[in-house]
């Protein structure tokens, strides 16, 4: 049988021996913040997102009702029970292309990262991963006690032992591809609001 490309590549790599060094230890105490919550809010705002705090779900609804994009939204979906005005059943959608008309989507974020303003979310929370990107306005509710200092601590929490899509979201979709002018709302959500609960 003919040699496969896999064999050829691995053989040519094995033929050249490089001097190895140990894999460095990583320090989870790099970049700590006195007030991680304040730092998270500040970084998120600096990348075009919005950070709010809410006492309970009622408070979330009250604050959402004040947002223009929520008031103007025709189709609102949520995977968080108890959000007002939800009129689009995202769980009942079979083909993700149908999500194109969704204006507003509320979901839980697992945890937030103070250092870079990112929130971790995954497929486990939604019926279709397209939801994170296709909706016009995205709201993530994150438990306020779930804020880590930095990415090193984030990866200490995460386990990748089964097939699942997960991602860090830091702000709304954006581009600066025309003359370095920052434009919010490239392909994905035009706004990102994180509510610390």
């Amino acid at each position: 049988m003919a040699e496969t490309s896999r064999d050829t590549i691995l053989q040519s790599l094995r033929a050249a021996r490089l001097e190895s060094v140990e894999l460095p230890e990583l320090d989870p105490s790099w970049s700590q913040f006195a007030d991680p919550r304040a730092r998270f809010a500040q970084v998120l705002e600096s990348v075009g997102g919005r950070c709010l705090s809410a006492a309970d779900l009622q408070d979330v609804n009250r604050q959402l009702a004040q947002r223009t994009e929520f008031q103007q939204a025709k189709w609102i979906g949520s995977t968080v029970a108890g959000v007002d005005r939800v009129n689009f059943d995202v769980m009942g959608v079979g083909d993700p292309h149908e999500l194109e008309q969704l204006d507003f989507f509320v979901a839980m974020g697992q945890f937030a990262i103070a250092e870079n303003g990112a929130v971790w979310v995954s497929d486990a929370q939604v019926p279709h991963r397209a939801l994170w990107f296709i909706v016009q306005h995205l709201v993530l509710i994150v438990p306020a006690d779930q804020i880590v200092h930095n990415l090193h601590q984030a990866y200490q929490r995460l386990r990748f032992d089964h097939a699942e899509f997960g991602l860090l979201i830091a702000g709304p979709s954006k581009t600066a591809d025309i003359e370095q002018s920052l434009v919010i709302g490239a392909h994905g959500p035009r706004s990102l609001t994180v509510i610390l609960l």
Partner: peptide, 8 residues
């Protein structure tokens, strides 16, 4: 500080 989306 990080790109908007880091998909895994």
């Amino acid at each position: 500080p990080i790109t908007t989306y880091t998909s895994h």
